Lab assay of single mutants.
Amino acid sequence: HNLTITQGKLFFHYNPKLCLSEIHKMEEVSGTKGRQERNDIALKTNGDQASCENELLKFSYIRTSFDKILLRWEPYWPPDFRDLLGFMLFYKEAPYQNVTEFDGQDACGSNSWTVVDIDPPLRSNDPKSQNHPGWLMRGLKPWTQYAIFVKTLVTFSDERRTYGAKSDIIYVQTDATNPSVPLDPISVSNSSSQIILKWKPPSDPNGNITHYLVFWERQAEDSELFELDYCLKGLKLPSRTWSPPFESEDSQKHNQSEYEDSAGECCSCPKTDSQILKELEESSFRKTFEDYLHNVVFVPRKTSSGTGAEDPRPSRKRRSLGDVGNVTVAVPTVAAFPNTSSTSVPTSPEEHRPFEKVVNKESLVISGLRHFTGYRIELQACNQDTPEERCSVAAYVSARTMPEAKADDIVGPVTHEIFENNVVHLMWQEPKEPNGLIVLYEVSYRRYGDEELHLCVSRKHFALERGCRLRGLSPGNYSVRIRATSLAGNGSWTEPTYFYVTDYLDVPSNIA
């Protein structure tokens, strides 16, 4: 807008934040220059609390790290170098490059900038070799853009010569660093050979998330399962459950009422301010606690030095998902009996873990797994792929695949051998790939016309006998059925096997 004052003059007093240069501009645009008398524009009460600059400061050096910015700028000295009290560095987070010096300023003089007072450097006698002032900004957020400017702080001049310097606002972004852990990993099994893994992005990506790394490792069953005799009275049979499938998407929606109208769909109840505040506090606490764990609990591995020492970490090797089922080394339970199943799973520490690289999504279907087997899954978020990966501390989750139908069934015939004193040795093959492992066998036998009897055969007993022995049988026709019990439950009964026990007292003698 054009402003013209045809008559009258300007009068400025007691404006401590208004620089004289701005008042002189007002004289020019209003056409009143030359009308004012000496005392109409006070030299001592206008701009006496402001830094009124008329020179431009330029930054000469900028260096960044993930949490620091090192700045240096060209030296500046007023005509009387004693008038320079120091520099004021202003900075704040700036997602967009549209910041002005006066953003967030209120009537009390406060604003949204963080201000650092910096002492002037030592003055050199040689004007050509003056030290460049600077400042190291610490405690910054990774991968965050900051708006920065600097200006001088000078003393009051009796001659009211307006001098000083100020830089333009520059924008500097800190470097990326390792992201925080992925949030809320959930693993479920939808079949006997697959596990579905879902997660949420890290709360602090500290860069642009480029991919996720998912490692999985087959877990050995508890050692007590191999040692305890679950045929003993009072000892509860062990059981394991597989990871249940995901709930429906509708039930997972946030901010939804727990109660549904019987007449149909209901609208979600909005969260109160107290609920939102509580969630923010919980989120802040979780982030602080995660940072504490990362800094205190997890110790970084030592990389190899120039002395030739090897990095103890196993090298990563990509495998196809079809090879995942046989990740671990199978060892027989008892070496003397080769027909026992290889369900003991000690994992070799030198073995390469299978892994998958996930790009542009937060889910993965891990296939080719062994049925009813526990897996430990390790999830890392990465925001750099080359020249070397920059990934987060791992988040861990466990899951067990679903049982395989008929995996616990005894394959092959049940054979028998009759000894003296009416002892019958029953023999059968253990299931080759049971659900988890076989903890015991149930032997059901009966003599024709009598009630059915049951015998429990422990895992250890089966390994020693290759089956079991029935003792003290009365003469007669017998039928026997056997079924295995694994961590997933009972298998199917075998087809009945028949044998006849004679009275050993009636056996004919070869003595003449």
Rank of each mutant, 00 (worst) to 15 (best):
E260W: 12
C456G: 01
G322S: 08
V397R: 11
T288W: 10
W216M: 15
A488V: 10
I366A: 05
Y478S: 00
D408S: 03
Y445M: 10
H371G: 12
A405R: 11
Y259W: 10
I418N: 12
A488S: 07
V299L: 05
E247N: 14
L277V: 07
L237I: 07
Y448V: 10
F246D: 09
I366L: 12
R447K: 05
N295L: 04
Y230W: 15
L426F: 04
N477L: 06
A336L: 12
Y441N: 01
S223Q: 10
P332W: 04
E356L: 08
R390H: 04
T328V: 15
Y498H: 12
A309E: 14
S283V: 05
S341Y: 04
P508L: 07
N435K: 00
D229N: 14
R469W: 09
R400I: 07
P205M: 12
N255P: 14
S474D: 06
T502P: 08
S283Q: 10
C456P: 05
R471V: 15
N490Y: 15
C382R: 00
T272N: 12
R240E: 11
V296F: 03
R390G: 14
S262K: 05
E417A: 14
M427C: 01
T241Q: 13
K278P: 12
I438N: 03
P244A: 10
L440N: 15
L440E: 03
Y375K: 00
V501T: 05
V345D: 12
G306S: 09
A263N: 15
A394I: 15
A263K: 02
E362N: 07
D503Q: 15
L453N: 13
E249L: 08
N435F: 00
N360C: 15
L225Q: 09
R446L: 14
S239G: 03
S367D: 07
S274A: 04
S348P: 13
L455K: 04
Q380W: 11
S486L: 01
V414T: 03
L440Q: 15
R459G: 05
E388S: 09
Y375N: 00
E221H: 13
A405T: 14
S392V: 01
E227N: 12
S262R: 13
S342A: 13
A399P: 05
S341Q: 14
E249P: 03
R286T: 09
P354S: 12
R319E: 15
S348W: 10
L232Q: 13
K460F: 07
N295K: 12
S344T: 13
E221D: 06
V414C: 03
R481G: 01
F372G: 06
T340M: 14
E227Q: 08
K302H: 13
E281H: 15
H425N: 14
Q256L: 13
S223E: 15
A463N: 13
Q252N: 03
W216Y: 12
D291F: 12
S363N: 04
N490A: 04
P238C: 09
T307P: 12
N360Y: 07
N383F: 04
